[in-house]
Design a protein around this nucleic acid. Sequence first.
DNA 1: TTGTATGCGTTATCAT
DNA 2: ATGATAACGCATACAA
Lengths: 329, 329
Amino acid sequence: MAKPGEAPTMKDVAREAGVSLGTVSKVINGIPVGESYRKKVEAAIKQLDYHINAYAKGLKNNRTYTIAVILPNMINPFFGIMAHYINRALVRHGYRMLLCDTDYDYAKEQEMVQMAEQNKVDGIIALTYNPDLKISQNVRSVSIDRCLGGNTPCVASDNYAGGRLAAQKLVENGCRNLAFLRIGSALASETNKRKDGFVAACEAMQIPCVCKVLLDGTPIEEFEQFLRDNLTDGRLAFDGIFCVTDKLAVETVKMLRRMGQRVPEDVQVIGYDGLRTFGDGDYYCSTIVQPAEAMAETCVRLVLEETDTNTPSLLCLPVSYAFGGTTKA
Amino acid sequence: MAKPGEAPTMKDVAREAGVSLGTVSKVINGIPVGESYRKKVEAAIKQLDYHINAYAKGLKNNRTYTIAVILPNMINPFFGIMAHYINRALVRHGYRMLLCDTDYDYAKEQEMVQMAEQNKVDGIIALTYNPDLKISQNVRSVSIDRCLGGNTPCVASDNYAGGRLAAQKLVENGCRNLAFLRIGSALASETNKRKDGFVAACEAMQIPCVCKVLLDGTPIEEFEQFLRDNLTDGRLAFDGIFCVTDKLAVETVKMLRRMGQRVPEDVQVIGYDGLRTFGDGDYYCSTIVQPAEAMAETCVRLVLEETDTNTPSLLCLPVSYAFGGTTKA
DNA sequence: TTGTATGCGTTATCAT
DNA sequence: ATGATAACGCATACAA
């Protein structure tokens, strides 16, 4: 080894093998080279425990084989699942994942994008909220659940169809008075379409439907108040409720039970996301399942794809319904 | 801009500002420089939307300000939480996180370590299972929950104390016949100490205690059989059960209820991990809480620390008890 | 204080 | 087919 303590370089390998630098490079990159040379070089590589320096390589080729993935956090299970499947798809294509956790902080979101650009990543996959996030057009990018414009395609579950599916399932199960509950950001996001699809399906089926939409930060008690306001003589005005997320659905079920309502006998509840306890256990509730794996793979395909033209600006992936105990089976 | 489409370099900035390359470098690195020059350079940087190339910088300094974090997956909520807090601590120190999801695959674990070495990361934080994982001593590394030897310190929750705490809480709550349930890998891991601490505390308190330890892959039904075998006339031989994880605790509670036992009235159950529904909701069960944030910060501190000597080889962080409805309040 | 020149580890373009 | 050599973008020792 050249300098003990320092990692060996191609030069060291070349010296050890008694060949030139160029030959070593060729062996490493699979470019044809004399058999005897190949063997000598390979022996030297093993001997020195040589590892190629990805930074020097990246500097040379302008490709880093790294994709930055920007997500709000890893504590919300949905984001964890996305990170998992994105990573898996990336690795399968020989790429690495630089993961950036923004903690829902707009400023951090922008910072992370800049960091990614500095790091010369080959692409960015981002799920962000900052309404005026600026992504350089020089780097390939894909957004999740929010249309950013420019040439950043957006990947989402088919939120509209999901909303419709929820309404259909509730009605199929006998519900005749529906409600939609949402708490979330006021920002334009694909997830808003969950409500639109639900309402449209209700109208098509001529089923009455009431919507209660709260802004992030509103205490959850407001929903309880809303539900109590619709209670007369211990009987709730709704027999089916669609909640914008599984988390809200679970909270809602708790509230309903506190109010003496039986779920699913008196009221049926459907959430959205398809989360499972401990990540892989039971569903928390009956739910519209986001196709997380397909979404992740779509993101990766788009971010690695060369062709820029003819790319759809929005890709909605099909959702499905899963029984989780809060609807009639 | 020099070549449209290509990212601008320091050279472009120097030309634009009418100064030399070295001056630009100094401005960027905060090395004192004439006021007028500073302004010109800063203007040019803004003008060209220049971003420093982290790869060239890394090549030069032999520092990448990147840490590889190797975890089994992001679907298990505990790993997601660790990733979140590790990322946060890293960012606070000006570092980036290269996240590697191994899917519990031994071969992938080793691959990821090599990838990290190639990528010339400044350090590795890893939670792995491969019993003969080989980490180069040239790179700073920290392990979670498993002692790897070499100069790789191990960070874990105080599993032994956690086991003891579980026994104490159960006995405090009136239990007199305890059981320990575990399903997991046969490998040497810090988590094995949960049992040791529990058993030791039982002995110290002179409380009888039965252990049932299953290997990964065993059908969960074996536990149910075990419990049924300890059922006489509808009365279970145990009134307190400590499960090695929250997940197992939740499964156990379900089994107990299926068998007609009331939890916590007839049997109390304590898990380990401190997981919450949806990441930040309620505890799944009464539990011994791992100090995830402190563990993450400890890992980061160790991996970034210069000093190599006097580093403990094992750091156990204090756990706490949390009520989650499966014990008497 | 400012500019110039060299080298980091790699790849690619040349002669040989 | 192989070897020498020039970049890639940046930091820095050294010269001006």
